[in-house]
Design a protein around this nucleic acid. Structure first.
Length: 589
RNA sequence: GGCCCAGUAGUUCAGUUGGUUAGAACGCCAGCCUGUCACGCUGGAGGUCGACGGUUCGAGCCCGUUCUGGGUCGCCA
């Protein structure tokens, strides 16, 4: 039977030469140099070690073992006669005295080559995730995730926060995302729901007197996936503070995150406290996004006045926003690709023209602007060599489209961004209400439980018509880093009176508050502390730190886009008996 | 649910204007090779071109439908 290894595959050095050792691991590769000389690479979690087979019999033994089998090699460490300085174990090799196969790999051909698994088809990678994870490049992201989570825990604990777990089986919440439901066996017709976030529990903890709470919390939302959004489940660094406001929350995260980003990220600088604060409206005007990448040195310009009257059809009656890139040298092909890419992402057309080196308006829609050349140059402050990208539509559409244009230009044109850093910012002063596009009535913009800026007074004024409710802002904030929305948070509305008033403005009242959030509302009626919190997404943070574009690269066992686990075959059908116990009858379509 | 892109050997891809027996690299198998480390050299096996239908003398290529995967919009308080 196997006795423990004496060393792992990453630790043997020249100083170990002469020692008798026992190593175990996966047989990664065999390089046969002759019938009586071969080099075998053994890999474990820690690294790789070279084993040398220098007799015909040994070469034959290794030959009979399929790659990726697990083996045990007992032997003597020897200095290599030709060293490899690129490997930490490159000075030595193990000369085997005993070889044992511990776990045979039955297949001589794998679904993909381990060290190239990242190039393989994603569906195949996910199906054989256990092989994919053998690839050090894949595995290292998971290790990074462990280290980051561990560092976050330590820092939060050091800041006086208690980690408290909250229920996974809980009640369905009527608003927000679609719930995952779990049928209750002992309560026919009733369901538990998996929490979309521990939101209500953490606020209730505040009313119970816990001063500083956090949790690496699993959250479940039955919504469609994106490259940066895992379907089904994800993790948040969920936190809440009692007797605290926006600045208190900001200063905790400004203290916790930058050192962790600088230590574990691919870039080793992160913005220092305090992070830049940008109002929601200002962010939309300047960057065309509520999650701006501040590393990109471009801001949007307004071009409505000239655009709307220049005779170019798509601009008539529209708001027009411009992105100006100085000293632009890209080709026409690049510009066409850019416009196509923006349209794919936004569904909106984009337009362009240039001011060439001779000071002439050329390309794109320039002929519509020729008559107003001087006004165009003045309005956009153009210099020869400038490229101007344009987006038009209703105000929000024009801003968002121009925002995508800005981001793509920043990412693809050399010299427009200082990429090698983490640039945080807070987006603050989100509107409390918005006009529903379908209903045409006033609705909550984000969650209804943020504290309105101005409290009861401003809500009363809105009710009496003194204040336009659309101008009321909430103590609601987002944390953004390099164009990625890491987190949403808020100062909560802990006052039942203000809460009811906030609901009354959208045509609801105490009955609805109590019906939708009974536990939290009742708890607030017994003396609640003012409190505030936030919940940065762990997966998103690790993605940024690892420099990955797909969230699946930082999740150990990710689901595919359609919320299926193709390795475990989930979701799957269940036995009739199980359904019967749960009082469920399947209806065929 | 809408839109965009992709699907050819185990893997990653190429495949010209529709025209003979569909190619390459890596991997796999066999042989050679005594210091490799992305070992090298020689040879070999391996294909329902996602599926179905259509156009055509002839389809990997053109058209239609459909399936699968990814991206995106909707959605994600």
């Amino acid at each position: 039977m196997l006795q423990s290894r004496t060393h792992n595959c990453g630790e043997l050095r020249i100083a170990n030469a002469g020692e008798k050792v026992k190593i175990v691991g996966w047989m990664e590769n065999v390089r046969e140099v002759s019938a009586s000389l071969a080099f075998v690479v053994v890999r474990d979690f820690y690294g790789t070690t070279q084993v040398v087979a220098d007799t015909e019999a040994l070469v034959k033994s290794f030959r009979e073992i399929n790659k990726e089998s697990t083996i045990l090699v007992e032997g003597v460490v020897r200095e290599r006669s030709s060293k490899n300085p690129q490997q930490t174990t490159g000075d030595i090799e193990v000369v085997p005295e005993k070889l044992e196969v511990l776990g045979r790999c039955r297949y001589n051909e794998l679904p993909f080559q381990i060290n190239h698994s990242r190039e393989a088809d994603e569906a195949t990678r996910l199906k054989y995730r256990y092989l994919d994870l053998r690839n050090p490049e894949v595995k290292n992201n998971i290790i990074l995730r462990c280290n980051v989570v561990s560092a976050l825990r330590k820092s939060m604990t050091d800041h006086g926060f208690l980690e408290i777990t909250t229920p996974i089986l809980t009640a369905s919440s009527p608003e927000g995302a679609r719930d995952y439901l779990v049928p209750a066996r002992n309560h026919p017709g009733k369901f538990y729901a998996l929490p979309q976030a521990p939101q209500q529990f953490k606020q209730i903890l505040m009313t119970s007197g816990f001063d500083r709470y956090f949790q690496i919390a699993p959250c479940f939302r039955d919504e469609d996936a994106r490259a940066d959004r895992s379907p089904g489940e994800f993790y948040q660094l969920d936190m809440e503070m009692a007797f605290a406001g926006q600045d208190d929350v900001f200063s905790v995260l400004e203290d916790v995150l930058p050192p962790i980003f600088a230590q574990y990220g691919i870039y080793n600088t992160a913005s220092a406290a305090p992070f830049k604060r940008i109002g929601f409206n200002e962010s939309m005007e300047l960057y065309g996004s509520d999650k701006p990448d501040l590393r990109i040195g471009l801001t949007l310009r307004d071009f409505t006045e000239i655009g709307a009257s220049c005779g170019f059809g798509p601009f008539e009656g529209s708001i027009v926003k411009a992105v100006v890139v100085p000293e632009f040298t890209q080709t026409r092909k690049f510009i066409d690709q850019l416009c196509t890419d923006v349209e794919v992402q936004t569904g909106e057309k984009t337009f362009w023209f240039r001011l060439d080196e001779n000071g002439e308006l050329v390309g794109g829609i320039s002929k519509f602007l020729a008559e107003k050349k001087d006004a165009v140059i003045a309005a956009l402050d153009l210099k020869p060599g400038c490229f101007v990208g344009l987006a038009a539509g209703k105000k929000l559409t024009a801003l968002k489209t121009a925002g995508v244009l800005r981001k793509m230009l920043g990412n693809s044109v050399e010299g427009l961004m200082d990429r090698e850093k983490y640039e945080f910012c807070w987006i603050v002063d989100f509107p409390m209400y918005e006009m529903g596009e379908e209903s045409g009535e006033l609705e909550f913009c984000h969650n209804p439980f943020s504290m309105p800026n101005g409290g009861l007074e401003v809500l009363n004024k809105a009710e009496s018509g003194e204040v336009d409710p659309l101008t009321i802002t909430a103590f609601q904030y987002d944390l953004v880093c390099n164009g990625v929305e890491l987190s949403s948070g808020a100062v909560r509305n802990h006052d039942p009176e203000i809460m009811v008033k906030a609901f009354e403005l959208v045509g609801l009242g105490e009955a609805e508050v109590m019906a939708k959030f009974p536990a939290m509302y009742n708890a607030f009626c017994y003396g609640a502390p003012p409190h505030a919190g936030i919940a940065p997404g762990v997966d998103r943070m690790v993605m940024l730190l690892a420099g990955e574009d797909s969230i699946r690269e930082v999740i150990p066992f990710p689901m595919n886009k359609n919320a299926q686990d193709v390795m475990m075959n989930a979701p799957s059908e269940v036995e009739d008996k199980q359904l019967k116990e749960l009082h469920i009858k399947l209806v065929s379509e």
